[in-house]
Amino acid sequence: MDLILAQEAGGSGLLSLLPFLIILLLFVPLFLNGRKQRRQMQQTQTMQQALEDGDVVVTTSGLRATVVDASYEDTIDLEIAEGVVTTWLRAAIREKVAADEPAEENTEAEQSEQQEQSENKPTIH
């Protein structure tokens, strides 16, 4: 009888730690994810502050533009088309695009391949 009570007492000690272990298992991933987000936010802010005239950027709305004037602290002037300059908040810049990266255009071979594929498809009336 004493042996059974001793085993139950030992097991209940482990059961009393179970809620703390569950809480720990839930909060560790949240903590690590928060650190990752803070690091990414810091990198984005550093990039936004380091922008210079002539840099090609993409805004949070997906607009690709060239930096014309980066002399202001909170805003930045972007040329979205030839002769069209708009003022944006620096926080609206999502990423800096490599200047030598070409726009996504289809080459002649890709265009002819797409045309052949569309010609081979049956039309449904």
Rank of each mutant, 00 (worst) to 15 (best):
V28H: 02
A81L: 15
L32T: 03
T59A: 07
I80N: 01
K96P: 00
T44F: 02
Q42Y: 06
L89K: 12
N33K: 10
T123K: 05
E73G: 02
T123R: 04
L63S: 05
E82S: 08
Q117I: 12
A92D: 15
T87D: 07
L3R: 06
E101G: 00
E52F: 04
T66K: 13
Q42P: 01
A65G: 04
L17V: 02
E105R: 02
A91P: 07
P102F: 06
Q37R: 14
G54I: 02
S112Y: 11
L5F: 04
S112V: 09
S112G: 02
G13K: 09
L25G: 13
P122T: 07
A70T: 12
A81H: 10
A6N: 02
E108M: 05
R64D: 01
S16Q: 13
L24N: 06
Q40C: 03
L51I: 08
G62D: 10
G11Y: 11
V85L: 09
L21Y: 08
Q42F: 05
Q111V: 04
E119S: 06
E95Q: 10
P29G: 04
T86R: 14
R35V: 14
T59P: 00
A6F: 01
F20K: 12
E116K: 12
N33A: 11
I76M: 06
E105V: 03
I80E: 09
L32S: 04
L15A: 12
Q43F: 02
L26K: 14
D100T: 03
D55T: 02
T46Y: 10
H125G: 08
G83V: 09
F27C: 13
D100R: 09
D74P: 02
V84L: 13
T123V: 03
P29F: 09
L18A: 05
G34Y: 12
G83D: 08
E8A: 07
L89Q: 15
M1S: 05
A98V: 01
S16D: 14
Q117D: 13
P29S: 05
R39C: 02
L14P: 00
M47W: 06
T46H: 12
D74A: 13
L63N: 06
Q114S: 10
L78T: 01
V97Q: 01
E110M: 07
L15R: 12
G11H: 11
E105G: 00
H125K: 13
W88F: 15
Q49R: 15
E8G: 04
R90L: 10
A92S: 15
G10F: 01
L5P: 03
E82K: 14
Q43D: 10
D74Q: 15
D2G: 13
D100F: 01
T86L: 14
L14Q: 11
I93S: 07
Q7K: 13
A103T: 11
S118K: 03
I4G: 01
I23E: 12
A99V: 12
L24Y: 05
E95W: 05
V67D: 01
E73Q: 13
E116H: 09
F31Q: 08
E108I: 07
I80K: 01
I23A: 13
Q42H: 11
G11P: 00
E82T: 11
Q48A: 02
G10N: 11
T86G: 08
T107I: 07
L24E: 08
A98D: 15
T60V: 12
E79I: 05
V56A: 02
T87Y: 00
Q111I: 05
Q40T: 08
S71H: 09
P19S: 09
R94A: 07
L21F: 14
F27Q: 08
I22A: 06
T46M: 07
